[in-house]
């Protein structure tokens, strides 16, 4: 039964990828007056436009064009970036580890802080702790990530000067590439200066990126705890005089934790979207900055490539979360 469920979810991934690629096809080929103009960029020469037209198969009938589009997608030929003049897929592949390091750090911060704070809120329902944290979480959701990133950079790097303003690591300190994650690589190679430098560079962007999801996780956890606290099975534990520590850390944590797992996948979407602007502000060499710069320069192949990659990452992560949830919650019926 579980196997069938997993199979269904994986099939869903492929369906979503199909939809995404089709949408990008429609956006690239159907909507623009002249797709070649977009594909060749704003400052293209006549020859470049002609080359793009040929590459896109504009002389071929629509259905053949669509098949061509798919063939190119599947063989990894996603076009040349106008800005970097390199194949988009290679550009993207190179930047994924930096983005994953930043995104995962932000997720870890959001979960590690958000769940305990949310539990605190729920347990101290309607006390000043609850009210203060609620106001903070409402404010956290309303903060524009790009502006928060700029403000943090302004205060902590430029005015206080305690953290680096841009980049991923100090020049010349980059550790030997093993996983592409600087923190892990510097630990693996026992490279302390690289570890310190990369951590210092990570703090601000990760915090800026974590704020929104953190605020939401606090709210979701709080609501889940309140829901659990209203249940009869908590009363059973109280009637049995179970230690409060056990009730809270074991029973409430698991019952309230499950709904939180379901939003983690969703949160990852916000992190991916926020990643674009945070990387731009902090000059972080990942997917987000690549895409943001592509937006600013209208580097069309790069934008489309990033959209597809981000959509795939998102749907895969969400499917994984769903499957993990199915394992965790015994009540799930497949």
């Amino acid at each position: 039964m579980l196997a069938a469920y997993i199979l269904k979810r994986v099939a869903w991934i492929f369906f979503v990828i199909f939809v995404v690629v089709t949408i990008t096809y429609v956006l690239t080929m159907v909507i623009p007056a002249n797709p070649a103009l977009l594909w060749a960029g704003p400052h293209a020469t006549k020859e470049q436009i002609e080359k793009a037209a040929k590459y896109l198969g504009l002389d071929k009938p629509p259905f053949e064009r669509y098949l061509m589009y798919w063939r190119r997608f599947l063989t990894g030929d996603w076009g040349l970036s106008i800005h970097t003049k390199r194949p988009v897929l290679a550009d993207l592949a190179k930047r994924i580890p930096a983005t994953m390091e930043l995104g995962l750090s932000a997720m870890i911060i959001a979960i590690a802080l958000g769940v305990p704070l949310g539990i605190l809120c729920g347990v101290r329902y309607e006390t000043w702790v609850d009210h203060v944290l609620r106001i903070f979480s409402l404010a956290g959701v309303a903060l524009p990530t790009f502006w928060l990133a700029i403000m943090m950079q302004l205060v902590f790097s430029y005015w206080l000067g305690i953290l680096p303003s841009t980049g991923r690591i100090d020049p010349g300190l980059a550790p030997k590439t093993i996983t592409g994650f600087y923190i892990i690589d510097s630990i693996l190679t026992n490279n302390i200066p690289a570890l310190i430098s990369s951590l210092k560079h990570l703090v601000l962007p990760a915090l800026a990126l974590a704020t929104g999801p953190l605020a939401i996780i606090v709210r979701v956890t709080r609501a889940a705890v309140l829901d659990v606290l209203s249940r009869e099975h908590v009363k059973t534990l109280l009637v049995y005089g179970m230690p409060r520590r056990v009730i809270l850390m074991k029973y409430i944590a698991k019952s309230a934790g499950l709904p939180v797992v379901t939003v983690i996948g969703l949160e990852f979407g916000y992190v991916l979207a926020g990643d674009f602007v945070v990387e731009l502000v902090f000059d972080w060499p990942g997917l987000g900055r690549y895409a943001a710069e592509a937006c600013l320069t209208l580097d069309y192949p790069a934008i489309m490539g990033t959209v597809i990659v981000v959509a795939i990452i998102y749907v895969v992560v969400n499917t994984l979360v769903d499957i993990v949830y199915a394992f965790l919650d015994p009540r799930i019926r497949y």
Binding site: W12, F15, V16, V19, V20, I23, T24, L27, T28, I31, P32, L38, G269, Y270, L272, A273, F276, A291, C295, L298, Y300, I303, M304, T306, V307, V310, A311, Y314, V315, N318
Partner: peptide
Amino acid sequence: MRITDAFLSIPGLVLALAIAATLGR
């Protein structure tokens, strides 16, 4: 509903980015 769900499975702002880029500034 399948189409709706598929749209929900794509981060919306990222998709909006692609559409905006196509339509132009």
